[in-house]
Write a protein that binds this DNA or RNA. Structure first.
Length: 419
RNA sequence: GGGGGAGUGUCCCGAGCGGCAAAGGGGGCGGACUGUAAAUCCGCUGGCUAUGCCUUCGUAGGUUCGAGUCCUACCUCCCCCA
């Protein structure tokens, strides 16, 4: 391992963000000379970023922390094309409206991680639709297309994967890497960007950009990728029963987000603390070293620190306190996710248990609920449901005026009568 | 342009003599064991106003008491020949 001299690369190396660097010595030297402007691109394929994107976001944060300038590149243009990397099949084309609305909803997240502004190390957000939408095909082919060798493009993993598997790769998607390379060259020219970062699956795309930048702009550009994030048991990060672990609060509650991190596997705790929190390395090491049940303390710290970054310190503390009351005291915590039900309905005809669990969103259908009852997975006010025809009535309200529904040991929702 | 093959339970992969709500995996969920972990074991994994009804096997028709299974056309993809 190389001994880095710049605080930037030192920090990245210590915390585990480095998988590959295009020219480590030169980049290290450049970082010592003054603020580097670096960027990461984010596609707008969904209405929120999820845990899988946090590596990228954190890299930009660390970059800024070590005195450099981060650029968040929104892929308003490239999302229209679709990145074939790591996908078996072509993604369905998204309409301009969907992309625009996704982008609007994604943007807010970054303000929690980066400080934006006009200063030399302030973060900036740009949208590649600005220059991609207005490209003229023939001039583009002549100026940039000539720098790309199809022979070489065919050797890139994103392309090879499809070809090897006899999966179709449309010409549209084939262009993605060219556009991403063009982004880099464009940003180098107009904004003095020197470095593109990304996940290790982006290495090929980044290298293309470096080459292109040298040819069309004569710029010496660099690339840095982070390891692909998986859990110790090999699962991809960010998937749970309910779907992706979204960063937007309206897509996933603070409580559920906190719970996601609280349930981290033992082997991942240290790594995640270094990657996803601002805690000093010594503290990360101390927490990581805890053994047996004690490591649960480390998981709580991890959960609260990450939640604080994404949702704010207050919300994180609240989630931790709610968890403490729910799991450690077995008490009813008022800040669990709450679903409102009609008070008159509850008082008069009552609400069937199955329906109640569906309403609470804990199960997908009555049939699903029925199965869970059979497996002993549903609880009302901590009592296992045994009769699927049971009716919830006003009498089932706890002194706090709610009914606590649980799926398994970990997922809880409060029903609150209103009206 | 000619010839051959494929598309299965809306998470994925994948069996499927004309009686099929459809084998088996993986993943996921629940239970047991634990520490709200991992590993392991067990159960579940179309919908409903439910001893029945409805919707599912690329799309649309047809044959049949009955079709994922047979026929026709179409769509998409792969392979071989030109």
């Amino acid at each position: 391992m190389i001994e880095y001299r710049s605080s930037f690369l030192k920090l990245f190396a210590e915390r585990g963000y480095i998988a590959q660097i295009s020219d480590p010595e030169a980049l290290d030297k450049l970082a010592l000379e003054g603020p580097i402007t670096a960027y990461i691109g984010f596609d707008c394929t969904g209405p929120s970023l999820h845990v899988g994107h946090m590596m990228g976001i954190m890299m930009l944060r660390r970059l800024q922390q070590s005195g450099h300038k981060p650029i968040v590149l929104m892929g308003g243009g490239t999302t229209k094309v679709g990145d074939p990397s790591g996908k078996d099949e072509a993604r369905q084309l998204l309409t301009d409206e969907v992309i625009a609305s996704n982008m609007a909803s994604i943007k807010q997240i970054f303000t929690n991680f980066l400080s934006f502004g006009d200063g030399p190390t302030d973060a900036v957000m740009v949208n590649n639709a600005e220059w991609l939408d207005t490209l003229h095909y023939i001039p583009f082919l002549r100026d940039y297309g000539r720098h790309f060798s199809v022979n070489r493009m065919l050797t890139f993993d994103s392309v090879k994967l499809r070809l090897d598997r006899d999966q179709p790769l449309s010409f549209l998607e084939f262009n993605y890497m060219i556009l991403q390379a063009y982004d880099f060259a464009e940003l180098a020219k107009t904004r003095g960007v020197r470095l593109q970062m990304g996940g290790s699956d982006q290495w090929g795309n980044i290298v293309n950009g470096i080459d292109l930048g040298r040819r069309v702009a004569g710029a010496e550009l660099y690339g840095l990728t982070c390891p692909l994030l998986t859990t110790a048991s090999g699962a991809k990060m960010g998937k749970t029963a309910a779907g992706a672990v979204w960063l937007n609060g309206d897509m996933l509650s603070t409580w559920d987000f906190w719970q996601y991190w609280r349930n981290t596997e033992d082997e991942d705790v240290g790594r995640f603390l270094r990657l996803f929190t601002d805690l000093p390395l010594e503290e990360c090491a101390r927490l990581e070293a805890l053994e047996g049940a004690d490591i649960n303390e480390a998981k709580k710290v991890l959960a609260t620190e990450v939640t604080a970054l994404v949702h704010g310190r207050d919300a994180a503390n609240e989630a931790q306190e709610t968890a403490r009351r729910t799991f450690e005291e077995g008490a009813l915590a008022e800040n669990l996710p709450t679903v409102e039900v009609s008070a008159p309905e509850l008082a008069e005809q009552g609400i069937g248990v199955l329906h109640a669990f569906v309403t609470a969103g804990l199960v997908g259908s009555n049939g699903d609920a029925r199965r869970q009852v059979k497996g002993g997975g549903l609880k009302v006010n901590d009592a296992t449901v045994t009769d699927e025809r049971a009716i919830l009535r006003t009498g089932d309200l706890t002194p706090e005026g709610v009914i606590k529904l649980s799926l398994g040991k970990k997922r809880h929702v409060l029903l609150k009568p209103v009206g």
